[in-house]
């Protein structure tokens, strides 16, 4: 009886040892050299694997950083300046200047402003609705409300508001990875420069139709009346394709355009309330999330 046990133990140990030796030599023979710095760089990356940098995952981005001559065109939007600075230090390169950004929805067409004209009864997928037709409203540029952006967001920063049917972005959680921008088939999410206290002034409309049809489809559409262009002292506003656009790098947050806009398509967000005189107007124009 005991001899059986001994033979078993010895033979199994021998087998294990032989396997270990074979494994060791094979591992040596097929060893792949990898730059150890890749691991170091990967350690400082956010490990979100969101693809915001344009690479498949953080590992691939780390490889690209190590191989790159300089950091031109390479940016981890999630980690921003901090992470890029750390990576630059590790690799002994110059850290790029990065301005923090945040995703902004360029549409304010809640059912209250943009009445529904049909009912979509297909797969809840914006891409499919977009290839099918104009959407549930008469605006062929605005939000379709089928959650593609919400599904694309890996940081829990974007959720649909059941009342307005529009996505709401939580600025603190948004890492500006750009996944929602890519997911939106109507391209109505923009990455804008982040300002102090998360303040924003922007034209919340993407409608390129002429004033008449745009207004008919949505009460808060930009009708390209150019009043905002005239009132802006800093040349921050331009009109192209029947649509006004405020350049975030030139805007000084004077808020003049907001009161000037006849349709209320320019939104001001995270500002203190205005002085009593204009408060009523501001309330009309502002939809605070």
């Amino acid at each position: 009886m005991s001899s059986t046990i001994i033979i078993t133990v010895v033979s199994l140990s021998l087998l294990a040892f032989m396997s270990a030796v074979i494994l060791y030599f094979i591992a040596q023979k097929f060893k792949v050299f990898e730059d150890p710095r890749i691991d170091e760089v990967q350690a400082v990356l956010p490990a979100a694997n969101c693809g915001g940098c344009g690479f498949a995952g953080c590992r691939n981005f780390a490889e690209a950083l190590v191989k790159a001559e300089n950091f031109d065109g390479l940016l981890c939007p999630v980690g921003g300046a901090v992470v890029m600075g750390q990576a630059a230090k590790l690799l002994g390169k110059e850290a790029p200047v990065i301005e923090p950004k945040v995703a902004v929805l360029i549409c304010n067409g809640s059912p209250e402003f943009r009445p529904h004209t049909s009912k979509y009864d297909g797969v809840p997928d914006c891409r499919i609705a977009n290839t099918l037709y104009i959407g549930e409203t008469d605006c062929s540029y605005g939000c379709l409300g089928n959650n593609d952006c919400e599904r694309a967001c890996t940081f829990d920063a974007l959720h649909m508001d059941p009342l307005t049917g529009l996505p709401v972005i939580t600025d603190d959680k948004c890492t500006s990875c750009g996944n929602c921008v890519k997911a939106c088939p109507r391209h109505i999410i923009e990455l804008r420069k982040k300002a102090r206290k998360d303040r924003k002034i922007y034209v919340a409309c993407s409608n390129c139709d002429k004033g008449g049809p745009a207004r008919r489809a949505c009460k808060v559409a930009c009708i390209a009346c150019s009043k905002c262009v005239n009132v802006c002292e800093f040349n921050a506003i331009t009109i192209e394709n029947n649509l006004a656009y405020i350049d975030a790098s030139k805007c000084t947050f004077c808020r003049k355009c907001v009161t000037e806009c006849p349709t209320g398509s320019i939104l001001e967000i995270n500002f203190p309330p205005r002085k009593p005189k204009v408060e009523a107007e501001a309330e009309n124009a502002t939809i605070n999330p």
Binding site: H116, S118, K119, Y120, D121, G122, L132, Y133, E136
Partner: peptide, 10 residues
Amino acid sequence: MSNLLNVSPS
């Protein structure tokens, strides 16, 4: 609301 036409892909 209910008198809106349904639209769905073929």
